[in-house]
Amino acid sequence: MAYLNQIRMQHAANSLIKTNQSIQEISASVGIYDSNYFVKIFKKEFNLTPTAYRKKLWQK
């Protein structure tokens, strides 16, 4: 399960910096429909919330 979550978070991180999709849309696209749980897992993987990650790495 940890490996699956790691792959999901990598895809989510990619989407965060390359698209304008909302956190909820990205969460659902990687198969996690509870956005609060998604934020918890994302923060565990990257030590940043999805919003902070996007702000830090946004490609303009």
Results as ranks from 00 to 15, higher is better:
25 E>A: 12
32 I>M: 10
49 T>I: 05
17 I>W: 09
52 A>K: 10
26 I>H: 08
43 K>C: 15
42 F>G: 09
20 N>E: 07
19 T>Q: 15
39 V>S: 09
40 K>M: 05
24 Q>P: 15
60 K>L: 11
41 I>K: 10
43 K>Q: 14
20 N>M: 09
34 D>A: 06
19 T>N: 15
38 F>D: 00
37 Y>C: 06
5 N>K: 05
6 Q>E: 12
9 M>I: 02
39 V>Y: 12
14 N>H: 05
2 A>V: 03
47 N>G: 04
10 Q>A: 08
60 K>S: 12
10 Q>G: 08
40 K>V: 02
58 W>L: 13
8 R>K: 14
10 Q>I: 06
46 F>P: 11
49 T>G: 13
20 N>R: 08
56 K>Y: 06
51 T>W: 13
16 L>Y: 04
57 L>T: 07
58 W>I: 09
59 Q>G: 03
38 F>R: 03
33 Y>R: 11
36 N>T: 13
12 A>Q: 10
36 N>E: 15
15 S>L: 07
26 I>W: 10
20 N>G: 07
52 A>T: 07
48 L>M: 13
53 Y>G: 00
17 I>R: 10
13 A>I: 07
10 Q>T: 02
32 I>P: 08
45 E>R: 01
27 S>M: 01
27 S>I: 01
22 S>E: 06
47 N>I: 01
40 K>A: 02
11 H>Q: 12
48 L>K: 12
57 L>D: 14
34 D>L: 03
53 Y>R: 02
23 I>M: 07
1 M>N: 08
47 N>L: 07
24 Q>F: 14
13 A>H: 06
42 F>K: 01
3 Y>K: 00
44 K>D: 14
10 Q>V: 05
18 K>Q: 14
2 A>N: 11
25 E>T: 05
8 R>F: 03
51 T>V: 02
40 K>P: 00
25 E>L: 08
35 S>E: 05
56 K>G: 02
12 A>C: 13
